[in-house]
Design a protein around this nucleic acid. Sequence first.
DNA 1: TATGAATGAGCGTTCATTCAT
DNA 2: GATGAATGAACGCTCATTCAT
Lengths: 192, 192, 192, 192
Amino acid sequence: MAEFNQKRQDILNSAMELFKEKGFHNTRMEEIALKAGVGKGTLYEYFTSKQEIFDETCIEKVTGIKEKIEEISLRDITFREKLTEMISMKQGSEKCPEPTIEGIMSNKNIISEKVVYAMMNHVSDMNKIIIRMVEQGKKEGVVNKNIPSDLVVTMIVGTVSEFIRNKCTNNFAGISGEEIIINLLFNGFGVK
Amino acid sequence: MAEFNQKRQDILNSAMELFKEKGFHNTRMEEIALKAGVGKGTLYEYFTSKQEIFDETCIEKVTGIKEKIEEISLRDITFREKLTEMISMKQGSEKCPEPTIEGIMSNKNIISEKVVYAMMNHVSDMNKIIIRMVEQGKKEGVVNKNIPSDLVVTMIVGTVSEFIRNKCTNNFAGISGEEIIINLLFNGFGVK
Amino acid sequence: MAEFNQKRQDILNSAMELFKEKGFHNTRMEEIALKAGVGKGTLYEYFTSKQEIFDETCIEKVTGIKEKIEEISLRDITFREKLTEMISMKQGSEKCPEPTIEGIMSNKNIISEKVVYAMMNHVSDMNKIIIRMVEQGKKEGVVNKNIPSDLVVTMIVGTVSEFIRNKCTNNFAGISGEEIIINLLFNGFGVK
Amino acid sequence: MAEFNQKRQDILNSAMELFKEKGFHNTRMEEIALKAGVGKGTLYEYFTSKQEIFDETCIEKVTGIKEKIEEISLRDITFREKLTEMISMKQGSEKCPEPTIEGIMSNKNIISEKVVYAMMNHVSDMNKIIIRMVEQGKKEGVVNKNIPSDLVVTMIVGTVSEFIRNKCTNNFAGISGEEIIINLLFNGFGVK
DNA sequence: TATGAATGAGCGTTCATTCAT
DNA sequence: GATGAATGAACGCTCATTCAT
């Protein structure tokens, strides 16, 4: 049984990488099998269809992100420290992964409907978690209580995602701007 | 010739809508032809392949966004006013369009390579334009000169994109948060 | 349109021959296409699936038989003459075809359900037609009125089918037993 | 060894039932194994292929029919009694079986060639047996000596098969027509 | 001996593209 | 130029068969 799960995961990992690299429609079942080191037919011992494999990889990715956010949110650290953790967050694999929720959600017309719902629930959960983090900030007296929390979340999520994205496409050669970005979020770019 | 361009544009518009709705691989040439009111074979009088049609729609979309940004950047208004214009920017079509650059770029494994380069150039241009806007802000004395402009751009682009995205998925029921977001960008969410 | 129907019929004929020769599952779409002199994809311009092609060939066959029976039943000849016509009936094609209804019905687990119903209706129609023929015989005073017509039909259909089948498998070398069989049906094999 | 034969027979019985119900190509080896209560691999300990299993079931069925006919033919009873026995003959299993030779022979393009020959020999044997029965009738003075025996056999086999077939498809609700059919065979349906 | 996880040849079907009209 | 009937390469999936245990 442990072995079953292991092989299943191998397939999922191979598929994930190929989907990321070439997209759903340009990835052939045969390639997934080859990469996972199994026969084509074996894929169907673990999954019922290519669609299911794709769905699972998507679910796994959002779940992974959500769990990281959740884990950060539960630590006994300040709001600012949590923000710093989030911005340093990395997807496990090498290279430059598809780290943002948005990248995953852009496959909406490929993912099967029920999985879209599942993912949207995850996204909604993440929003709630981050809203709670913002409210922690308000309690700590470091976040302005007059600003609606959801808009604060919008700025955080947007900025952090864009920052991570840019780091991947190497727009910030060498400079580690995390600290600056955090300050920007707190103080804005305006002159005081 | 004018007629040629008109029909070409009709095809492009039909294709754009279908691609947005169903994705590249789920859109059939026949559907595009049908929607454009031409025969299937006719598509090949105006484009050499489905790929080319897709490439063109992508280019057209980024170009559209870029031109809007450019147009805003050239107006004789303050930096803050330009920001406000950007956040109110809308993609032409009805419903909820695919307005952000990121949504388009997520098709990287479908777009043909040379078009990816073209698009990245556009994106890079846009960055430069926005950087110039930020520098205008610095000159006006409303943007903190000590913060690297590219990081300011990161925050602006990320926040604005996320804001537009959320407005589409109706996360902000009724409340028009544009003004608040602008203030957030300038002052951050921190307590002064 | 005439051309459409012609090509459709060509495909059907090729399919019919192959199905007869090799059965449904051993006949490949490619072979049907090859035999019909069209491309594999073309088959799908005329039919939606292999199943549909098979269904149509079955329908066509029973319909053909039914129409022949019907045509015979409508002629202005005596019951005995009609019987003689039936026993001399031949399926159009060369070689030794699959002439009996039973041969066709033996594909019940291949034919799609709704077509099975259609065929059973045809079979039921044929029974009614033959029953009417028997009743004509009773009116003519050549068929014993005390015997239930459906049992008479059973004997006629069974004997005629078996006779045709045997002629095909060459069990009756040269001898044309039609006349004898008709007499047998009327008088039985018993000694008077 | 007895156990070997028992299990072999179990497999054959399971297969026979499934083949009858769903046909050769729609029956999967896994189903046969499941129904026989053995593992998929075990099937190959007893048979070399699915084909062989099918061949054996066919042989077994014709052999069964032939043996019944043979057994009837050897009894010390009159020709008429033998006929009555034949028409009352039933295939062992419940429901409505595939009792006629023709039903089995309609699989000619599935059965392997050498088995087709074997079956045709059986069929030929059966004909000879029934011919001998007819000749017994002639000796008993109840069958007209002027009619070629093979044509008499044709009428008997055809009528009996059709009768059994119809009884299965419930065309004769309740009425047990066996006696009438026998009389029909002897006397025909003609008016004397 | 019995098993069932693994396999891959094989086939039905789709759809971008072509080309005769 | 405009068309759509015809095409066949390509791919997802099935299932008989194998073989390590």
